[in-house]
């Protein structure tokens, strides 16, 4: 059941992205930025939490989920550490993913060479 929920929620989020790209000529970079920012905002106003509880990875794997982690992290950190949490919360919550992206990104680009499109 969790898998079906993840499939449906993840699929729907991606379809929204597809409609944005096809309908408004947004570039992938614009779609990603919009999704992360809306993830943070939706989390702050309490809408994303129930979606994440329902959809599991379907809500956390797409980029709004990255925004969700940022938003949730900063709110928890402010509760715990006060004013310093404003600056540490978001990055702390997503540090693993960002460090992995930098490290694996660098590693893969050293190992592999780009190929032309077919």
């Amino acid at each position: 059941m969790v898998y079906i929920k993840a499939f449906l929620v993840g699929g729907v989020i991606c379809v929204i992205g597809q409609l944005l790209m096809d309908g408004t000529k947004m570039t992938p970079a614009h779609v990603l930025v919009t999704f992360v920012t809306s993830g943070v905002i939706l989390t702050a106003i309490g809408i994303y939490e129930p979606i994440a509880n329902f959809g599991g990875a379907g809500a956390t794997v797409p980029l709004p989920g990255f925004g969700y982690a940022l938003g949730k992290g900063v709110i928890e950190a402010v509760k715990k550490d006060g004013i310093l949490g404003i600056f540490t919360g978001g990055i702390q919550a997503t540090a693993g993913g960002v460090a992995a992206a930098v490290f694996f990104g660098y590693l893969m680009s050293v190992i592999f060479n780009p190929k032309t499109k077919k």
């Binding site: 943070v40 702050a44 940022l70 949490g85 660098y106």
Partner: peptide
């Protein structure tokens, strides 16, 4: 490396800090 992903981090981190500031004052 971050020509496309960089903006994602800037807006992601940026908006989380803003949310943090607002939350701090409401909380």
């Amino acid at each position: 490396m971050f020509s496309i992903a960089g903006p994602v981090l800037v807006y992601g981190f940026g908006s989380s800090v803003i949310v943090g500031i607002i939350y701090y004052f409401i909380y």
